[in-house]
Structure formats: structure tokens, C-alpha cells
Design a protein around this nucleic acid. Structure first.
Lengths: 219, 219
DNA sequence: GTCTATATAATGATAGAC
DNA sequence: GTCTATCATTATATAGAC
């Protein structure tokens, strides 16, 4: 389905290396505070070389975000397709997010990026404003269906809670915990906090952080 | 206790105007993405004029944050002192935060600033890293005592919940909701969401957004 | 595919006039 | 108390060599 790295052209490999590096640096220091020269340098080329692949800084940012989203969505789909039980996205999305945050807590990757960029992008006119707006809306919808499923599947079933509101709260909680965790990792257990929230709702999420999921194969 | 604006020296008035303007612009577009020239220009002076009052950009940021904190703490203290009932900070801090967010939702002010800057400052080495780290720790402690009070005061009293964990969740929720609200104000009711969370915990927070509190008198 | 060289603009900061 | 003038640095972006 996808080519193995060895069979990629040199250009394609460079392009991916740039995207990977950009993700790393933007995750560390946001968008406005990072220069193309630095991204390029850490990717082993000059900034002029980088601009051979992307028309500019905005293009790099948005390409990176969209590419990353695509990979995430594909990972979820393939997990569902190969799943041992769950046969739709809403049946695994809440667990997926828990597992995702658990993984990020032990090996930070994309989460700090999203939190930093999403706040930075809240100013209308920011190159990623539309992207993030749409992303949050879609995520909230998907997660709302996930909560509706979990409420029905819970033992006993959860009554009287609005899945949309819970989706909103869950996302907010995850984002906000990320900030506290980045500032003070020792005193912030994101997974425990999220599982506790699910517990308050009446969802027994014991062990959700440990569900087996195929790892990302991207560099 | 404080001098009236008319009696301030010209320099002091300018200094305050700069701080006020900086807060506005940093709240809009973060720290890294804003230039001193822009702050100065919107404050009606040149950037060299601004640097007469602050040693540099970092100094402006930190002075602004600390000054703002001081005003907030004083406001809480004076509310408690003049209070009709509650006689300590922990008895009103949860309600205060709800009211504060309600006010910010109708007239955005300082909240977008804190969310944007706090994420930006999560990188160690950022000029405001230490400040935000300390601020979150203090806020969490204060709020934990607040939750302990509310749990005991609830009807019926709330048992078996960790006030510290709730404080962490409440702050995370407030921060995260702010992001969603900034991106999509129509579909995000921060106050309703927070009151719902308190409701899940067993705290009846009906009307907490409307408690009367003396307004800030600062420009 | 990546480089050097360069154009152009903006930044944080300083010195010193007024 | 605020300005103009200027500096050194860095930025994004382009043109064209190799």
C-alpha cells in the first residue's frame, strides 16, 4: 500500500525529513518563534533547499498538519479494520484517545505541537486558523458519537448525559492537562486524570491506556 | 490606598498604557509573534520610547504578568474582606473562577492571554517558564482547598473525591474550553460546561456565574 | 536536489539629541 | 519623557549556479 523508505526517491526522503523536523521544532517552540533556517538546518539542508519543497512557512505548517492528520486517521481506520472486536470508529475512539495520550506521556510527540499551535492559531487570520477550527469541530463530532456508544455500553448504561458536552469537556481536559504536564510533569498524570473523569461519568475505563494498537510506521 | 489616575505623573500613565496595550496584543497573537514596535505604536509612542520604561521584551512580559496577578489577588482579597458571608479565599475561589470566566466570555480580556502565553511558555528556557510553572502550582493548591471546602459544604457532602485532582481537572477544563471558545464561540459555552462538571462532582453551582463582585478599577 | 548569493524587510536594542 | 538615527541580527523569499 505504501512504499518502503528504501524505495523512495532522494527528494521524497528529504521532504519527509523536513516535515518530521518541522513537527519536532514547532512542537518545542510554536510556530511564530521558529525560523525556516532552523528547521532546514536541523534537517541537514539550507533554508533555500527547504523552500524547494514548500512554497513558504505557512505551506510547511499546513502540509505538516494535514499529513499528520491523514496518518492518524489511517491508523485508526486500519486498527478498526484489523480489530478483534470493535467494528466502527465510535466504538474505539475514546479508548484510542486515552491510549494515544498515554503513549504521548511516555514519549512526547505530536500532542505538545497541537496544544501550542492550536492556541497560537486562535487568532483569526493565523495561517492555521481554519484548519484548527475544522479539526476541533470534526473531533468533537466523532468523539460525541464515541461517548454515545460508551454510555450505552457501560454497565450499568449511563443516562442523562449529553455526549456532545462530554466530548467538549474531554477534549478540553486533554488539552489543558497537556499544558500542566509540560510545565510540571511530576505532578500531572494526564491518563489518571482522564480515566478519573470517565469514572465520574460512570464509564469504567480501567486498562484503556494499555490496549494493543499497531504502532505508527512513519519516520 | 491607590492614587487616582489624574494624580499620576505623565510617565506613570504612559507606563500603564504600555502594559495595558501589551496585554491586549499578547492576548491576540502571543509573545513570539509580536514586536515591541507594534506594542509601542499602539500605545502611541515609538519603540525606543517604550524601552525607556522596560529593559526589553522579556521585562515587559514578566512585568505585565506579575502586575496583573497582583491586581487579581488584591481583587479577591478585597472581595473576601468586604464579603457578606465568606471569610476566606477557599470559600469563594471556585465561585470566583466561574464568575471570572463568565465575565471573560462576555468581554474577553485576560483569559486568552493566559492560555496563549502558558502554552508558549511550556518550553523550558522561555522567559515566562518559571512564572507560569509557579503560577499553576499555586493556583492548583488554592483551588484544591477551595474544592475541599465545597465538598464539605455541598448538600449532601461529597465523599471520596480528591480535591487536588479536581483542581487539576478544573483548571485544565477552563484552559481547554478557552481554546475551543476562541476558535468557535457559538458552539462553546464555557460557563455551562464548567457548571456541568461541578454538577457531575455533586456540587450545585447554580447561579455562581452571577455572584456580585466589585469590578476591576484598573484601566 | 541543493547550494551560494542576494534582495528586502523586520526585529531587539543602543546612543544621544531635544 | 520621548524622539530620531542607527546597529547588528535575523527573517522570508528569490535567482541562478552546479
Amino acid at each position: 500500500m505504501t512504499q518502503t523508505p528504501e524505495r523512495l526517491t532522494k527528494g521524497e526522503r528529504t521532504r519527509r525529513r523536513i516535515l518530521h523536523t518541522a513537527l519536532e521544532i514547532f512542537a518545542e517552540r510554536g510556530y511564530a518563534g521558529v525560523s525556516l533556517r532552523e528547521v532546514a538546518s536541523r534537517a541537514g539542508i539550507t533554508h533555500a533547499g527547504l523552500l524547494h519543497y514548500f512554497t513558504g512557512k505557512d505551506d510547511l505548517l499546513l502540509t505538516m498538519m494535514i499529513e499528520r492528520d491523514r496518518a492518524e486517521i489511517e491508523a485508526i481506520r486500519s486498527y478498526v479494520a484489523a480489530g478483534t472486536g470493535p467494528s466502527s470508529v465510535e466504538q474505539i475512539i475514546v479508548r484510542w484517545m486515552i491510549r494515544d495520550i498515554a503513549r504521548n506521556q511516555s514519549r512526547p510527540d505530536i500532542a505538545p505541537l497541537f496544544v501550542k499551535l492550536s492556541t497560537e492559531a486562535t487568532e483569526s487570520g493565523h495561517p492555521a486558523y481554519d484548519y484548527f477550527r475544522g479539526r476541533y469541530i470534526r473531533l468533537r463530532e466523532t468523539l460525541a458519537r464515541g461517548f454515545a456508544y460508551e454510555f450505552a455500553a457501560a454497565e450499568p448504561p449511563v443516562e442523562g448525559r449529553d455526549p456532545g458536552l462530554c466530548a467538549q469537556q474531554f477534549i478540553a481536559l486533554a488539552d489543558g492537562l497537556q499544558v500542566q504536564w509540560l510545565l510540571d510533569p511530576e505532578s500531572t498524570d494526564m491518563v489518571a486524570s482522564l480515566l478519573d473523569y470517565l469514572g465520574i461519568l460512570g464509564i469504567d475505563a480501567e486498562g484503556w491506556a494499555d490496549i494493543a494498537v499497531p504502532e505508527d510506521r512513519s519516520a
